[in-house]
Write a protein that binds this DNA or RNA. Structure first.
Length: 423
RNA sequence: GAGAUUGUAGCUCAGCUGGUUAGAGCGUCGGUUUGUGGCACCGAAGGUCGAGGGUUCGAACCCCUUCAGUCUCCCCA
């Protein structure tokens, strides 16, 4: 049996890594511009963190987690993280970060694991960048997080996106709305499909998300959560929108946007791309004021955040040709030897270049002179330094500019000085 | 988890209704004055046709199973 990556996972080869570096670089820069600091948490956690944090009725917890028992003799259960928010909140509470600052703003770029059926833009190990802003219940925090996400995409040049926005209100409004929705749906119960019937009991809000065209009419006429918001939630939502307008960020209200995870409340948002298939959500997030409480914290811990899929972003950016300007890293100079003695010289000469901060490369295959020249060209080196018996005798080497084919005779020190200026 | 579809050299793909040693382009390697790359020309290496089983005189091609990709549903990033 051949060894290969397991279902839903993939290698990121050197030929592709530049795209990742470019995205990571850009993402970090924008996060830091907003005053966010990076946080890194373990890839696995106690299973109960996700059970409590994400919600037992969600698909993630129900069937998508990689859960294992490291020790057969113990009942300890661990899980590869399926998302970051619960882990970040755990870290925030564990280290008492609220005590060291009134607000905590952290970002992450991490790999996550969910055991779903893979398809384009949906892997079992996948990467997300995102942030959590913990400590503020004010709509300013919501607005800033949305603006931050939006600025990342704008900086990367991603277009053809739609920002969908909704408010889920607080816990009570959500509950009142859920009841109202059930009352509305009850007479139509027989029209619902099997999945919706199941949701009717567990989480009727998710029926609104159904793609079944037969339900479109029923859904369109359903009561809207916005009409059930209490005055405080309503004011919060309106303030968020006012800021978005002031920032020049376009959005559409979508009352069907409920998001899958239980911990969301108040603002919910999602960014869709027209350049993706069925998995068209590039990123999404919202407010989750109740999460800390479900993890056992008794102090109020309001928070907002978003998460964004990197594999999907890459698909979109490839389609939009946003990577075309990336250039392959090339060595400044390639050392080429013509004899055994010369090879020894090129090895140490290349080392001296590197110590001087110059990107240098040298033949490790003991290949022919010609093959070394071809290799310099293949890797795109700017210069070749040619060393043979004559050069070793005279102490002067050929420095060849591979773009212009112009060649000059210089001592090694002169070569070093010249390359230092060019680097 | 359900359905559909695809799977031939490192990459992108040809291979007519099953018929002898499975092809091309790109890439890789070598050569065309063994001290000078790119371009051009010449040549080579590289495939148990995803894997396993079956039908057949004969299978890349037909059947079954399995693995993986892709698409849809579900769900989500």
């Amino acid at each position: 049996m051949k060894l290969q990556t397991v279902k839903g996972t993939k290698d990121i080869l050197p030929s592709e890594i530049q795209k990742w570096h470019y995205i990571e670089r850009t993402v970090r820069r924008v996060f830091e511009r907003f005053g966010y600091e990076e946080i890194r948490t373990p890839v696995f956690e106690e299973t109960s963190l996700f059970l409590r944090g994400i919600g037992e009725t969600t698909d993630i917890v129900g069937k998508e987690m990689y859960t294992f028992q490291p020790d057969a003799a113990s009942s300890e259960s661990l899980t590869l993280r399926p998302e970051m928010t619960a882990s970040v909140m755990r870290a925030y509470l564990q280290h008492g970060l609220r005590a060291s600052a009134p607000i905590t703003k952290v970002y992450y770029i991490s790999e996550l694991f969910r055991k779903e059926r893979p398809q384009a833009g949906r892997q079992r190990q996948f990467w997300q960048f995102g942030c959590e802003c913990i400590g503020s219940a004010a709509p300013e925090a919501d607005a800033e997080v949305i603006a931050l996400m939006s600025m990342i995409y704008r900086t990367l040049g991603v277009q053809n996106t739609v920002l969908r926005l909704n408010s889920l209100g607080n816990l009570e409004t959500r509950k009142r709305y859920r009841d109202a929705l059930r009352e509305y749906l009850r007479p139509n119960y027989e029209k619902l499909d099997a999945i919706s019937k199941e949701r009717f009991e567990k989480n009727p809000l998710r029926i609104l998300d159904s793609k079944n065209p037969d339900l479109a009419d029923v859904i369109a006429a359903a009561p809207r959560i916005i009409d059930y918001l209490d005055t405080e939630s309503k004011a919060h939502f309106e303030t968020v929108q006012t800021y978005l307008k002031q920032f020049g960020i376009d959005y559409v209200i979508d009352f069907k946007l409920v998001r899958g995870l239980d911990y969301y409340s108040q603002t919910a948002f999602e960014l869709q791309s027209a350049d993706l298939g069925a998995q068209d959500a590039l990123g999404g997030g919202g407010r989750y004021d109740g999460l800390a409480a479900t993890l056992g914290e008794d102090k109020e811990t309001p928070a907002v955040g978003f998460a964004s899929g990197i594999e999907r972003l890459i698909i979109v950016m490839e389609k939009l040709r946003l990577f075309d300007m990336l250039e392959k890293k090339v060595p400044m100079v390639m050392f080429i030897s013509q004899s055994d003695a010369a090879r020894e010289w090129t090895m140490t000469a290349a080392m001296q270049c590197r110590q001087a901060g110059i990107d240098a490369d040298v033949d490790l295959l003991r290949r022919s002179f010609k093959a070394q020249m071809k290799e310099s060209n293949r890797v795109g080196a700017h210069y070749a330094v040619i060393a043979g018996e004559n050069e070793l005798q005279s102490g002067k080497f050929q420095l060849k500019n591979l773009a212009t084919s112009v060649q000059e005779e210089l001592t090694f020190n002169e070569i070093l000085e010249k390359l230092k200026i060019e680097k």
